[in-house]
Amino acid sequence: MDIMKYVWCFVIGGAICVVGQILIDKTKLTSARILVLFVTVGVILTGLGLYQPLVDLAGSGATVPLTGFGYSLGKGVMKEVDEVGLLGVFTGGIKATAGGVAAAILFGFLAALIAKPKMKKQ
């Protein structure tokens, strides 16, 4: 078993979150803006070919943060363009991320039906 794979996963995943934390503490960005920013940056870095090496190195450490969601969008769209041409520009991104998005919508909906919001204890 390759232990270094897990070390890099932890370190890179943690480091990406640290970037988010610096933005929150220093620029007062809200969490919604952080998420939008990270997805967009992930797509762009993937398009430039800079994110794939990070995924090769850190696995889930690079795909679990929201930049990884951007990576899926970017990688998906390029793959689809290779396979079907121009139409792939529109279908590739959503196709590659459909599972996660559909799951989030369904589980989010079910959670709203079941859960009741409660006051934070602190």
Binding site: C17, Q21, L23, P65, F107, A115
Partner: peptide, 15 residues
């Protein structure tokens, strides 16, 4: 950000 940036945080912001 440790729990906002991962996809679990995205899920939290939906629910």
């Amino acid at each position: 950000a440790g729990s906002i940036v991962p996809i679990t945080g995205f899920a939290n912001s939906i629910a």
